[in-house]
């Protein structure tokens, strides 16, 4: 089989899906589908989810609809050796849920302290300014993992759900060209 034939063979193969728990049953959904269907979260609280949605959307437009919160929630609910988060390759020490709890808590804590509201309740302009300061390690009274590291990890998650998928490649006008497409359980 030539390279072109192999690529053609792969076209139309399914997009990767995660195993989400719905009413006690495991179903395969993409994070985008899980978000659209409001699949219940397993580890993150509603407040943490609202923060992550808002931070993700500020970092990478489209991240909320692409399911960043369902993605992260599912990934921190499985054993660390099964997790595929950026945190894994950025040397975060498992359990990864601890990092996300600390990071999201630090964001809301600093937002409340400096702006009087949690991050999700800020205006888009305020959210942008907050993230810009966080990126540069310039938020007053920050208590949590280092600000630039939180920025890097959460930005990476948002990039994953928006751009590291077949839809993301389509959006950028480049072919995905998988040898083995992501069709299995994550």
């Amino acid at each position: 089989m030539t390279g072109m034939e192999r690529r053609a063979f792969m076209q139309g193969a399914g997009l990767g899906a995660l195993a989400f728990m719905v009413n006690g049953a495991e179903i395969m959904l993409t994070p985008r589908q899980a978000q659209a269907q409001a699949v219940p979260l397993r580890t993150l609280t509603a407040g943490q989810a609202a923060t992550l949605d808002a931070v993700g959307e500020t970092l990478v437009p489209g991240a909320k609809e692409a399911g960043i919160t369902n993605f992260v929630d599912q990934q921190i609910s499985v054993p660390p050796e099964e997790a595929l988060l950026q945190a894994r390759i950025l040397n975060v020490r498992p359990p990864f849920a601890n990092f996300y709890r600390a990071a999201l808590g630090a964001i809301d804590g600093a937002s409340t302290k400096t702006k009087g509201h949690k991050f999700a309740e800020l205006s888009p302009a305020e959210q942008h300014d907050f993230i810009n300061l966080m990126r540069q390690n310039k938020i007053e009274g920050w208590q949590g993992p280092p600000e630039p590291f939180v920025y890097t990890v959460l930005r990476g998650d948002a990039v994953d759900v928006v751009y590291a998928t077949v839809e993301g490649y389509d959006m950028l006008g480049i072919p995905y060209m998988p040898h083995v497409p992501p069709i299995k359980k994550w």
């Binding site: 990767g16 997790a83 994953d160 060209m177 998988p178 992501p182």
Partner: peptide, 12 residues
């Protein structure tokens, strides 16, 4: 066949 073409999956 487990070597999925994906930056996300490659972290496994």
């Amino acid at each position: 066949t487990d070597l999925i073409s994906s930056d996300i999956w490659g972290r496994r």
